[in-house]
C-alpha cells in the first residue's frame, strides 16, 4: 500500500458516498446517469467476485463490500425509490456501444484466458469508459449540479492517483500491469475536459454549464 493508492481509494469512496448522499438528501437523481451507475455496479460485481475465493486484507474486503453495496444502493435509488426524478430523456447513451467492444477486448487481450481473469479484465476495461453516459448526459443537458461536479471530480481524481500508484509500485516493487495502466490512462484522459471546467468554473464558485 502507498499514499497514492490509499488517497485514491479514499477519493473513490468519497465520490461514491457524495453521490449516494446527494440522491438520498435531495430525494432526487436529476442530472445523474443511471446507465453509468449500472455500469459501475457491473464493474464492481465482475471485479470483486474474488471476495468469496481469496482473502487479501481486512481493508481490501471491507472496501469491496462497501463499494458493491453503495453501487447497488445508488442504482436502486435511481431506478426504484426516486425513479420519478430520473431524467431518462437525457440519459440516452447507447451502452451496447461500450459493452460489446469491452467484452471483445477482454476476451482478446488479457493476462490469462481464465474466467476470473477475463472477468477482471472486462471490469478494468469497462471501468475506463463507464463514466461516458454521465459525461454525455451533462453535455446534453448543458449543465450539472455543483454536488454532481464534486462527485465527478473525486471519481476522476481516484484513477489519476492510481496512475501515480502504478509509477510508485513500478519503481519500488517492480509491479507493472499494462492492462490496468492503459485502461487507467484512458479513464483519466476522459476526465481532462471535465477537470478543466471544474477547476476554471466550479472552484471559482460558478455553475458548471457547457456551451449547449
Amino acid at each position: 500500500m502507498n499514499i497514492f493508492r490509499l488517497t485514491g481509494d479514499l477519493s473513490h469512496l468519497a465520490a461514491i458516498i457524495i453521490l449516494l448522499l446527494k440522491i438520498w438528501k435531495t430525494r432526487s437523481c436529476a442530472g445523474i446517469s443511471g446507465k453509468s451507475q449500472i455500469l459501475f455496479a457491473l464493474v464492481f460485481t465482475t471485479r470483486y467476485l474474488d471476495l468469496f475465493s481469496s482473502f487479501i486484507s481486512l481493508y481490501n474486503t471491507v472496501m469491496k463490500v462497501i463499494y458493491i453495496m453503495c453501487a447497488y444502493a445508488t442504482v436502486y435509488l435511481i431506478y426504484g425509490k426516486f425513479k420519478a426524478t430520473y431524467d431518462g430523456n437525457h440519459d440516452t447513451f447507447r451502452v451496447e456501444f461500450l459493452l460489446i467492444p469491452v467484452v471483445l477486448l477482454a476476451v482478446l487481450i488479457n493476462h490469462a484466458f481464465a474466467p476470473m481473469e477475463i472477468l477482471w479484465t472486462f471490469s478494468i476495461y469497462l471501468e475506463s469508459v463507464a463514466i461516458l453516459p454521465q459525461l454525455f448526459m451533462i453535455s446534453k443537458t448543458g449543465e450539472a449540479e455543483t454536488i454532481t461536479t464534486h462527485y465527478l471530480f473525486f471519481l476522476g481524481l481516484y484513477r489519476t492517483l492510481y496512475l501515480f500508484n502504478w509509477i510508485w509500485r513500478f519503481y519500488f516493487e517492480g509491479f507493472f500491469d499494462l492492462i490496468a495502466v492503459v485502461a487507467g490512462l484512458v479513464q483519466t484522459i476522459l476526465y481532462c475536459d471535465f477537470f478543466y471546467l471544474y477547476i476554471t468554473k466550479v472552484l471559482k464558485g460558478k455553475k458548471l454549464s457547457l456551451p449547449a
Partner: peptide, 10 residues
C-alpha cells in the same frame, strides 16, 4: 503475456 499477478488492488 505476463502471468496474472496477485490482484491486491481494488
Amino acid at each position: 503475456e505476463t502471468a496474472s499477478q496477485e490482484k491486491d488492488e481494488l
